[in-house]
Simulated scan of single mutants.
Amino acid sequence: MAITAQDVNKLRQMTGAGMMDCKKALTEANGDFDAAIDILRKKGQKISAARSDRQTSEGSVFVKTTDDGSEAILVALGCETDFVAKNEDFQKMGEAVVAQAAANKPATTAELLELNVDGRSISEHLTDLMGKIGEKIEVVAYEVLKGDQVVPYIHSNGKLGVLVALAGVNGTDVQEAGKDVAMQIAAMNPVAVDKDQVDASVVEREIEIGKEQARAEGKPEAMLEKIALGKLNKFYKDNTLLNQQFVKDNSKTIAQYLNETHKGLTVSAFKRVNIGG
């Protein structure tokens, strides 16, 4: 049957696919719109398979916080190019995914992808979007954080997001302090909140590195352990959040800044996601 321009435009409005893709799909489906939609979806699946080894080093971070501010959800949607990351359909998809994550609280990324949106799973919607855009698109991170108050932060490039959970809030408005700390985490990339949360394997590695450095400097064997522990303390100051110097005021640590803001205020946990980083 003859495929009219009106038919092509109708399918385009229904699917968001390109004009030529819609015309080809309708022609192949002999004008059957449902079959044409399936063809376009299959095209997306083929693109997904063909691009499975591509790197999603671009993308955007999306966050949503509960009304009481005690919980925040972060979803990072990855793609291949910055151009696609700024695409309106890509951005809408990210907002839809994080909204579903916040509403349903799935335990894993796999469960998130199976959530139903308008009768189809998020995974299917992502496949359709890949068919439309022609790039690999995937959820590269999904994080949920709870606390007395959780403050989100997205860096200006949209690719780096932070959630920071504050404790000892006691009803005080600490949004500004929370944002300062979230920006600190974005800039300084700490490995843990405090030294007692640093993984034991990391501690062992740092001690061994410290010993080897001291040995290379010709220090006596009897002094190596003490020197290495001194270097470990320096590692804690540089790499654990509460012990880091506050980037806005190097005269105080993050722990001191928070306690000065509101006595007893501290950080219980944080999440940091950097797409492609």
Rank of each mutant, 00 (worst) to 15 (best):
K43T: 07
G94Q: 11
A269W: 10
K24G: 00
Q91V: 13
S60C: 04
I185C: 08
A165R: 13
A96P: 02
D196G: 03
D180C: 01
L166Y: 04
C79R: 02
S251W: 02
A101Y: 09
K42A: 04
V162G: 08
T66W: 11
L242Q: 12
T109N: 12
G264S: 09
L11V: 06
I207G: 02
A17R: 12
I3G: 05
K64M: 13
L145E: 03
I227A: 04
A192E: 12
E58I: 09
T253A: 09
A110F: 02
E225Q: 15
N259A: 11
E176M: 11
N274Q: 14
G276L: 01
V162C: 08
K179T: 15
L145Q: 04
P106C: 02
G277C: 07
S57L: 02
A5D: 11
K248H: 11
E221K: 12
K64F: 02
I275M: 09
E124F: 05
L241D: 08
K226R: 14
L112A: 12
T4W: 06
V174N: 12
E217I: 02
I37C: 02
V273Q: 10
K92R: 13
L74A: 08
E212P: 00
Q91G: 00
A50W: 00
R272C: 01
Q55W: 00
D34L: 09
G147M: 13
D199V: 04
Q244Y: 11
E143C: 13
D67T: 14
D249W: 01
Q13V: 10
I185Y: 01
N9A: 13
K23H: 07
R12K: 14
K179C: 04
L115M: 13
K42Y: 01
K237P: 00
G264Y: 05
L258N: 05
H262A: 15
A85Q: 01
K46V: 14
S48W: 02
V150H: 02
V191G: 13
K10V: 03
A167Y: 00
L112T: 11
N157Y: 08
Y142H: 04
A96K: 15
R51F: 05
V193P: 03
V174W: 13
T81P: 05
V61Q: 03
N104W: 03
D82P: 08
E138I: 10
K43E: 01
Q45V: 08
T4G: 03
C22G: 06
K219N: 03
D196K: 15
G147T: 08
G178F: 13
P152M: 06
V198A: 05
Q184D: 10
F62H: 14
K271N: 14
N30I: 00
G178Q: 10
K92S: 10
Q184A: 06
K24A: 05
A85V: 06
Q13F: 00
G178V: 08
Q184P: 11
H155T: 04
L229E: 15
V247S: 11
L224S: 10
S201G: 00
L160R: 11
D249A: 01
G168I: 03
